[in-house]
Design a protein around this nucleic acid. Structure first.
Length: 575
DNA sequence: GCCGTTTTCGGCCCGACTGTTTTCAGTCG
């Protein structure tokens, strides 16, 4: 799949366009096209032989479409090669230094020939930049700080890390009880799998009480105050995470919440749509264009409703058609935690889990589940104490024993390895005795895309396989997915009636949101498994639900919403 | 560079903070 390479290339083009001060709307057109490719669930190569389909994609017209085709056929884009002749590529890195934008980057290059971050640092330290027009002592200091900040950070947070950080900061801000409302917005509220920074919105109890801004800058663990105004401040805290706080009064709270939740693309589309209807939207509210009169903005509901739109859940606000659906009153009723009646992927002490089946049962009862599936590893995964056939029999009888002491329905599952030749780690005779078979790849990550795709397809053909676990094998922020044609796998899932797992482990979240949505569009059904290796992990189910919601899934798309009777019937039907 | 149920040309979301300015450019979200 060349999608990421193409995205990287187009992103560089965008940076160059900023540098040469190209028409801002042209730049936005490129940015929009990049978003479209990021949300594409298929390999871009598939458009090689039917370009007409490429041009139907949102934001891709003649100009950018031709460049994409040029890239697919020749591996490069001449337009980009020409841009490189104007300015060295290393200027793009300079522009990524906080405080350095295209204007300053270009000026320093033309005046001093500064073409990389190292040179920038040297010139800044020598004090030669301060006398330039538009520069000054503080600007130069900010640039130096920016260089340090950049070298130390760059990483995004996993969603669950952002979650605990957010809790800590919001409880600090609310401890004096001067605040009536507080929300963490941005990509965190949209439940993205990783979060770049934390955006907090709050409404003080007393109008014009700005004291919380001051308090915010005193948060324990603050490393640097980037900016501090009357209604807005930005800090950097330990771990080099940027946190922004914005104060807003009651009458604007809803529109501010809407605005700061984003995404940028969603907001642009919403505002464009509002203009068609004669309204202008900002974080302060919805206003009539003609009279500039305030119309509403107290709640998010109001903002969408005044435009004749259904309320759009934050998880759907990615500019991927949700506004059109909202217009037609056709948004999905998203899955929620209260719909969940069981977990399809739990490890016990039989393999590499920390807790016994008895303990898992106890915790699952507390969660209000009707059923669970204990999936341990299969025999060849020695590092995880995979079960051989004998141990598997022991596990089956243990489940029977524990079942006598609980109302909870316990299914015996296995996370069976897909071996490097595509065969499964247990014989069909063994698999037939197991209630739920979820097949997974744990070895041979370096194989070619064809090999891995074929391996998984072969596993799916097996009549005893109910599901595919963590279908792309990625570890967020650590390891890329193995090479696999995931759209082929998803399409096959419908054909073979195999579930796609949304693995809820916080650093997996695999399938991801985009592929989940693609699966739904192709009629695929899903199971959400926590992959819990300890009873504490059972709560990870909420992270799986986040992905499901971002993938537009409803109750009916997910087997975890079935009652114990329904799921039993469902699992048997497969055999 | 993209797009169109008034348009194939003329639009394209909106605002805060900083630092350097005498009214605003640059950067950021």
């Amino acid at each position: 799949m060349k999608n990421q390479e193409l995205i990287d290339l187009l992103t560089k083009i965008v940076q160059y366009l900023y540098l040469i001060d190209e028409n801002i709307f042209k730049i936005r057109a490129y940015e929009k096209a990049i978003k479209t490719i990021e949300n594409l669930p298929k390999p871009i190569e598939e458009f090689k032989n039917n370009p007409e389909k490429l041009y139907t994609l949102d934001g891709i017209g003649k100009g950018i479409g031709e460049k994409i085709l040029e890239y697919l056929f020749t591996g490069k884009i001449v337009y980009y090669e020409d841009l490189k002749k104007q300015f060295p590529e290393s200027l793009i890195e300079i522009m990524s230094v906080p405080g350095m934008g295209p204007k300053r980057t270009k000026l320093l290059y033309q005046k001093f020939g500064i073409e990389n971050v190292k040179m920038l640092k040297e010139y800044a330290q020598r004090g030669v930049l301060e006398n330039l027009e538009g520069f000054g002592k503080k600007v130069v200091q900010n640039i130096l700080d920016g260089i340090n900040f950049k070298s130390e950070s760059g990483l995004r947070l996993l969603y669950n890390e952002a979650e605990s950080l957010s809790k800590d900061i919001t409880s600090f801000l609310t401890e004096d009880e001067t605040i009536s409302k507080i929300d963490v917005c941005g990509s965190f509220r949209r439940k993205k799998e990783t979060v770049g920074d934390i955006d907090i919105l709050c409404c003080p109890k007393k109008e014009n009480d700005f004291s919380v801004i001051e308090k915010f800058t005193k948060y324990p663990g603050v490393k640097k105050v980037l900016s501090q105004g009357e209604t807005k401040a930005s800090i950097v805290i330990n771990k080099n995470v940027q946190v922004d706080l914005r104060l807003i009064k009651k009458s604007s709270y809803g529109s501010a919440l809407q605005y700061f939740t984003g995404s940028k693309e969603h907001n642009i589309q919403l505002r464009e749509y509002a203009l068609e209807k004669g309204y202008s939207i900002s974080e302060y509210g919805v206003f009539e264009v003609d009279t500039k009169k305030y119309v509403c903005g107290k709640t998010e509901d109001e903002v969408y409703n005044i435009l004749g739109l259904q309320y759009v859940e934050p998880e759907l606000r990615e500019g991927q058609g949700e506004i059109l659906f909202a217009k037609q009153n056709k948004l999905p009723k998203l899955l929620s935690l209260k719909d969940i009646k069981g977990d399809t992927h739990i490890h016990s002490t039989f393999s590499d889990g920390m807790n016994t089946i008895e303990e898992i049962v106890h915790s699952s009862e507390e969660l209000g589940y009707e059923w669970i599936i204990i999936c341990d590893h299969s025999k060849s995964l020695k590092v995880a104490h995979g079960l051989d056939e004998k141990e598997l029999q022991k596990k089956i009888s243990e489940i029977k024993k524990v079942s006598n002491r609980t109302k909870l329905k316990i299914f015996c599952g296995t996370e069976v390895d897909i071996l490097s030749d595509g065969s499964l780690d247990y014989s069909d005779e063994i698999l037939a005795q197991i209630d739920f078979v979820i097949a997974a790849i744990h070895t041979g990550f370096k194989q070619s895309e064809e090999q891995i795709t074929d391996r998984i397809l072969r596993a799916m053909e097996n009549r005893y396989v109910h599901a595919i676990s963590h279908p792309t094998g990625r570890i967020l922020l650590k390891r890329d997915s193995y090479k696999v044609n995931i759209s082929k796998i998803i399409e096959a899932a419908k054909r073979y009636n195999v579930l796609m797992e949304i693995n809820a482990y916080p650093d997996r979240l695999d399938l991801n949101d985009i592929n989940t949505k693609y699966g739904k569009e192709n009629g695929v059904k899903f199971c959400i498994g926590t992959d819990a290796h300890s009873i504490k992990h059972l709560n990870y189910i909420s992270y799986g639900i986040n992905v499901a919601r971002r993938g537009w899934l409803e109750r009916k798309d997910v087997v975890n919403t079935m009652s114990a009777k329904e799921i039993e019937k469902y699992l048997n039907f497969k055999k």
